[in-house]
């Protein structure tokens, strides 16, 4: 009979197996639990705010001063700051990141590429508080020499440094997707007489576009959620402005600013940072899902 040949430890093995499946499964659930925790916290802690303040005021008010005695709840003032710093950061990270990706994938000698890639990654490993320090105490004084009217806190300075921070996100994902474009396509274009840059721009770039788009979208998500650089260098005053030469608070900087003070549980200040947080979560969720979808598309295509 077959069962006679079952090794003595077999039953134990089965038991260990069943136990491990459960332990590992719990690990898998932990990640869902974290998301759940974030959503539930944001919803329950900001709900009392919405019970007090009608939604329309978030859109209608032009200032964000929830801690004043006559509060205003125009969240647009915070979103403006986030938008401006993000755009400044993207205006650095997208062109620079894309050129570096094209260069590293199509032009650079392979030994140079292997040397430089991990070094570029270090740029995104620098603690953001250090970048904030650098923006406030090194870049801003430098910019003030060129443009003397620049205030001590400015969205320009914070945005530029933030752009440097997200360059590696664009470059590394962009370079991966460009290198996965099949050699055959390049060779076809070379055979038709195109040059290296022509092939890169007309063949490789379109071929890798979903990967690059994913890189851009994830870079936006990073810039929107970045906190310390803007909190240190862009200022903490909410201001409805689109001029990057001014100082203004972002959604994230507002959360920091309120957290710095005394924050009794259940006060309007406490609730308002969860409202800002919920806003931030929705914004980045959109970008993260779009980025994930684009990335999957690129993996399927290659």
């Amino acid at each position: 009979m077959a069962s006679a040949f079952v090794a003595p430890g077999r039953r134990l093995d089965k038991g260990v197996e069943a136990l491990m499946v459960w332990i590992l499964r719990i690990g898998g659930w932990a990640s869902v639990l974290v998301t759940f925790g974030i959503i539930v916290t944001l919803v329950t802690e900001s709900a009392p705010f919405f019970a007090k303040v009608p939604l329309i005021r978030l859109v209608k008010d032009t200032m964000w001063t929830p801690l004043f005695s006559e509060p205003q709840y125009g969240i647009g003032a915070l979103l403006a700051g986030t938008m401006v710093t993000t755009l400044v950061a993207l205006s650095v990270a997208v062109p620079l990141g894309t050129i570096l990706a094209i260069y590293l994938s199509e032009f650079a000698p392979s030994r140079f590429r292997e040397l430089v890639k991990p070094m570029l990654e270090l740029l995104s490993a620098v603690p953001t508080v250090v970048y904030g320090y650098f923006a406030l105490l090194a870049l801003t004084p430098l910019l003030q020499k060129i443009y003397p009217d620049l205030p001590q806190f400015s969205m320009l300075s914070a945005g530029l440094i933030m752009g440097i921070m997200i360059v590696p996100y664009v470059t590394s994902l962009g370079e991966d997707s460009m290198r996965s474009v099949p050699m055959l396509l390049r060779e076809g274009a070379y055979a038709l007489g195109d040059g290296k840059l022509g092939v890169a721009v007309r063949v490789v770039f379109p071929g890798a576009f979903s990967g690059l788009a994913a890189a851009y979208v994830l870079a936006i998500s990073r810039a929107v959620g970045e906190t310390m650089i803007v909190a240190i260098a862009a200022g903490l005053q909410p201001r409805m402005t689109i001029n990057p030469l001014e100082s203004a608070a972002t959604v994230t900087a507002f959360i920091v600013q309120v957290s710095l003070g005394d924050l009794p549980h259940g006060s309007i200040g406490y609730q308002s940072i969860f409202v800002a947080g919920a806003m931030l979560f929705l914004l980045t969720l959109g970008f993260n899902l779009a980025g994930h979808g684009l990335r999957k598309k690129f993996h399927r295509a290659s």
Binding site: L42, L218, I255, G277, T284, L285, G291, R295
Partner: peptide
Amino acid sequence: NIANLAGVPSILYGLMALG
């Protein structure tokens, strides 16, 4: 969910921890 978590701004983890 994991792809999204990797992109959630760090400060939101702080808000979750606070609440």
